[in-house]
């Protein structure tokens, strides 16, 4: 009984696995890897693109902007995804902006603080200010929520405030936006920074966080990265991702589309 059902399962499995060999890889397949912020958007764009281009398959993988850049360079991916601009050492690659994402500082809703100056934020993140009473709040230790190395939100934040990651005294290191929001909403003394769209959505939904007003907007481009000037299918997909056909998808992910830079 056991061996019979096992044999049956195994046969089915091998038949299924065998079909893999027949499935040829043509130039109808694109692989995208990179930023976890861009990935859900790119996945939806890819689905719409596949619908209008029968036979084409676009595989979207995630892992962070740095990986997107590396994979585009080594050729493991046809297109990399990065939620930041390319830096100088990457200037040999080609980047194609498809949308923008803003970043906002968030606090727990129960925190009475309503604004912080850039200097105060710098001092909080470098550990010079460790308690909210030092910036006019209640006596409560500050929980500094920082992003993990390799995250483009981190790079943009550091660049904007002129900080070095090695100087930051973080209590919590997080990866994705939603994780940041969850950490801050569950901890009255926490301060963090995440995507504006995500933060606004969660605040409207009733999650106990609040966005701090910024003196100057912190925004970052969402890019597709290619090793060479794109051609063929990659070029078609990039043009499609930049066209107004996908504006609704961009808004659905709470990003700002190229066509309408101000939201």
């Amino acid at each position: 009984m056991l061996s019979k059902s096992l044999t049956l399962l195994l046969t089915l499995y091998i038949v299924f696995a065998g079909t893999a060999v027949v499935h040829a890889k043509g130039n109808t397949r694109l692989v995208l890897t990179g930023s976890s912020t861009v990935a859900p958007l790119a996945l939806e764009m890819a689905k719409r693109f596949e619908k209008s281009h029968p036979g084409v398959r676009i595989d979207v993988q995630t892992g962070g902007s740095s990986r997107g850049v590396v994979d585009a360079r080594t050729g493991r991916a046809d297109i990399g995804m990065a939620s930041r601009s390319l830096n100088q050492s990457e200037s040999d690659l080609f980047s194609h902006t498809i949308a923008f994402d803003g970043i906002s500082i968030i606090l727990n809703k129960s925190n009475p603080i309503n604004s912080l100056s850039n200097v105060q934020i710098q001092n909080i993140y470098t550990g010079k200010i460790r308690n909210w009473y030092q910036v006019g709040g209640p006596k409560m230790p500050i929980t500094v929520v920082n992003k993990a190395e390799g995250r483009s939100t981190l790079e943009l934040f550091l660049h904007h405030f002129g900080l070095k990651n090695s100087n930051i005294k973080a209590s919590v290191i997080i990866g994705d936006n939603q994780q940041g929001i969850k950490t801050v909403s569950g901890n009255p003394g926490a301060i963090g920074y995440v995507s504006v769209g995500a933060a606004e959505f969660e605040e409207g939904y009733g999650t106990p966080i609040k966005l701090l007003p910024m003196s100057s907007p912190l925004s970052r481009p969402l890019n597709l990265i290619t090793k060479q000037a794109p051609d063929g299918l990659a070029k078609q997909f990039i043009l499609f991702a930049q066209s107004s056909e996908v504006n609704d998808l961009i808004e659905e992910q709470y990003f700002v589309s190229l066509a309408a830079p101000s939201k």
Binding site: A20, H23, S36, A39, L43, D59, Q61, D176, N177, E202
Partner: peptide, 29 residues
């Protein structure tokens, strides 16, 4: 991997349930 469409064979990328749960709760607003 991360691809959430129906796999055609075991050579295709396919998203596991745990990855899907992680992505939805940590990454998708």
């Amino acid at each position: 991997g991360y691809v959430d469409r129906m796999p055609e064979s075991i050579n295709d990328s396919g998203r596991a349930l745990a990855v899907h749960i992680y992505d939805l709760s940590m990454n998708v607003v």
